[in-house]
Design a protein around this nucleic acid. Sequence first.
DNA 1: GGTCGATTTTGATTTCAGTCAAGTTGGGTA
DNA 2: TACCCAACTTGACTGAAATCAAAATCGACC
Lengths: 248, 248
Amino acid sequence: MTRIATLSESRDSCHNCRLRTLCLPDNLPKEDIGKLEGIVQRRKPVSRGGYLFQAGQRFNSIYAVRTGAVKTSTLMANGDEHISGFHLPGEVIGLDAIVSRDHPSSAIALETASICEIPYAELETLSERTPALQHRLMRIMSRELLAEQSTNHLLSRRSAEQRLAVVLIKFSERFADRGLSALRFRLPMSRLDLGNYLGLVPETMSRTFRRLEEQGLVSIAGKEIEIVDSGAMKALAFGAEGSQTART
Amino acid sequence: MTRIATLSESRDSCHNCRLRTLCLPDNLPKEDIGKLEGIVQRRKPVSRGGYLFQAGQRFNSIYAVRTGAVKTSTLMANGDEHISGFHLPGEVIGLDAIVSRDHPSSAIALETASICEIPYAELETLSERTPALQHRLMRIMSRELLAEQSTNHLLSRRSAEQRLAVVLIKFSERFADRGLSALRFRLPMSRLDLGNYLGLVPETMSRTFRRLEEQGLVSIAGKEIEIVDSGAMKALAFGAEGSQTART
DNA sequence: GGTCGATTTTGATTTCAGTCAAGTTGGGTA
DNA sequence: TACCCAACTTGACTGAAATCAAAATCGACC
């Protein structure tokens, strides 16, 4: 089946999307991308602070970030917000709702974000007759699982400095995956949000940023981050030094 | 002493398996269970400390726990072990490997465990022509994602008492899901392992168990746990009291 | 039943991050 | 441009869990 692409379609289509290889279409044959294309809905941009969906809302679709950045968070029994993740272009949001009928968490734009909405019922129907898509979905779920595990890991008995180093390195890698600089980037979220994610209060965030800067590992100007000594950062983040002692 | 319920053996087919509704076959039509049955391999029991698979090993299969209990853990750069989860009968292990070709973590039996091995290539082929199975796989992945998120949440800025209360309540619920007592059960792992999972050192685990006991919430005899005041436990685990203050 | 090593407990002390309190900065807008 | 409010920073103090050290208990195996 050949589609006649209009100008706006060609700009907006999965085929031409720069994020293709990170997102659902990765590794799909051309015709399957076309089919996927048929069910993807491109919504008007969500501005800073706007909701993609709210916790408790009926689950209908999953969402892929096209531009901008999004946080997902759950409201705890006591009214506190817990931020479970930050999502950059090419990443898929809402997969945690598949099992439960309702969204367990809310998704909020950190900066103006354009979003692709993919109705899940249609995606599921399509993937029944599209093995490559089914395959891809499983891989994306698995990838998310791994990312969550890595966050667990991060939160388990690591110092504030290590947590911050890890998260900065990971952002660096994610920006690099998107063709941006790995050494100079702008964090899309507030210190408060990043602290919430890392299990640290804003005061500690501030002091920890300063300590990393004093050690000559990074250079900070508000949300602009420059990684000055990437090797030392990785050593701090993943190395033996300063981590919990092995107890065998 | 009253006999503590154990996770007893189920028959050798998915059709008759008591864990059917927790595991892969849930909600599958009879003939699909039959097909699944055709690819499931029942291995000889793995004894305490034995590996189901090791980190770095080539990914070929996912595994379902039939009896016993299993922990999954990753070895960190510095040689430390980080335990990412404990797995009871009916739960599926190894889904985090789908994306990566190799297992990112090891799975180790905490007590003698019988395991169903499901070759992933065959499972994927089967699910291509079995929509219900595909559906079920997605739901299981989503469930795992939620479980990981909930662990993140648990590790993020909660006191030792709250962490322990949460994990005990969750084990209680999981045992109940398996038809065992929610109020009296035996934890399958050591304090060290549980502490590792919770991000706490064994000394703190010991003291925290004692504090919960002193408050009359639980009664502890080694690995045997009795939940004495389930309401107060839930209040401690999920309630407003003692948690971090909302900072808006 | 006794022995040895692993697991768990207990106590004393230290330390890192949290809390409280008070600025300072900076982006948005009137 | 100046104002305002939110975001961020800084400092002093506190407290919960880590660390260090040692003893007690458990349990697997002769």
